[in-house]
């Protein structure tokens, strides 16, 4: 045994190796690392596609399930690909489109640049793939969505009433084709959400058309316009297709009755009568008090 130690003493490198080995063997971190790697959470990706006035967006929502609840995953990097997961291809303009980081609600929105429509003019069905990869806490996951290239034409006619027409079309290789027998919505943009108008369950006719009459008493925007919208929604195949347009509108929003001088205004907007009464009372009483103080100081001068 003693000879072994002596041998050890002479070999510096062996000493070091032994020490290192002992360190890793005993270090709790060496154990802790392994199960942590195995405990990666499996996230769920939800994709929704939307085209609004020709602008295509893909919204990605990342969450994971815990006790029957979906908990959003914020601050995670999501890559978006077109067609298949690969590097960007200069010739076909396909491939990786970019990446984003989710916000606190686990959501992020990809917006496509204006030249995307030009580049993809002859493609009428898109396949988007969102993927999460090499994240320390979450498993690699990907999700895809395939959508058709749809669009809506919006028009309005004004006489005594304003009638809004919307035509739902689909792009095919042969050109555009109207989509009949499909539910659509006519809406007015509001501060929160959009207000539907026209009949309930508006369905396109043989020409892909729906029409509705704007409620005549609906307040518009302050600049004498109102924002009308047409929306077609089919999350499975087409995503959301939306068109909006400002049209002239004479009904202005109500104006706030700003009562300036009230009991609940700020101090300098107090009701005049209140200010006049209190200020005069204060002047009257403190004037008298000042006189009394003068009297008090005059006592010294009395001979």
């Amino acid at each position: 045994m003693t000879t072994f130690f002596k041998y050890l003493k002479s070999k510096r490198s062996l000493q070091l190796m032994l020490a290192l080995g002992l360190f890793f063997f005993l270090s709790p971190r060496a154990y802790a690392d392994k199960p942590a790697a195995a405990e990666k959470t499996s996230p769920t990706i939800k994709l929704s596609y939307k085209i609004h006035n020709g602008v295509k967006t893909v919204k990605v929502a990342v969450s994971y399930k815990e006790e029957k609840k979906f908990i959003p995953v914020g601050n995670i990097i999501v890559n978006l690909y077109l067609g298949e997961v690969k590097k960007f291809d200069k010739v076909s303009n396909d491939g990786w489109m970019g990446n984003l980081v989710t916000d606190d609600e686990g959501e992020c929105v990809f917006m496509f640049p204006d030249n995307f429509n030009t580049l993809k003019a002859n493609v009428h069905s898109f396949n988007f793939i969102a993927s999460i990869g090499s994240d320390p806490k979450y498993e690699d996951t990907q999700e895809e969505i395939t959508v058709n290239d749809m669009f809506i034409k919006l028009a309005f006619a004004k006489d005594s009433l304003t009638t809004v027409n919307a035509k739902l079309c689909k792009m095919q290789d042969s050109g555009m084709v109207p989509v009949p027998e499909t539910e659509m919505k006519l809406l007015v943009k509001r501060a929160f959400g959009a207000l539907p108008f026209g009949e309930d369950n508006l369905t396109t006719d043989a020409d892909g058309l729906v029409s509705g009459v704007l409620p005549a008493d609906l307040p518009g925007n302050a600049n004498k316009s109102i924002t009308i919208m047409a929306r077609y929604e089919d999350q499975e195949n087409d995503g959301i297709v939306e068109v909006s347009q400002d049209i002239p509108w004479n009904i202005l929003p109500r104006e706030n009755k700003l009562s300036q001088r009230t009991l609940w205004s700020s101090g300098h907007n107090a009701p005049v009568i209140l200010v006049v009464v209190t200020v005069s009372l204060i002047i009257l009483i403190w004037g008298t008090i000042s006189y009394l103080v003068i009297l008090l100081l005059r006592i010294r001068k009395q001979r």
């Binding site: 020709g54 970019g98 984003l100 917006m111 640049p113 204006d114 995307f116 028009a155 400002d246």
Partner: peptide, 22 residues
């Protein structure tokens, strides 16, 4: 038919990823 509404401003900077790759 298309009139750009409120999202117009969004277009200018949208899809930074693709532009970068291009």
């Amino acid at each position: 038919f298309l009139k750009l509404g409120i999202l117009t401003a969004g277009l200018t900077i949208a899809g930074g990823g693709l532009q970068k790759v291009l």
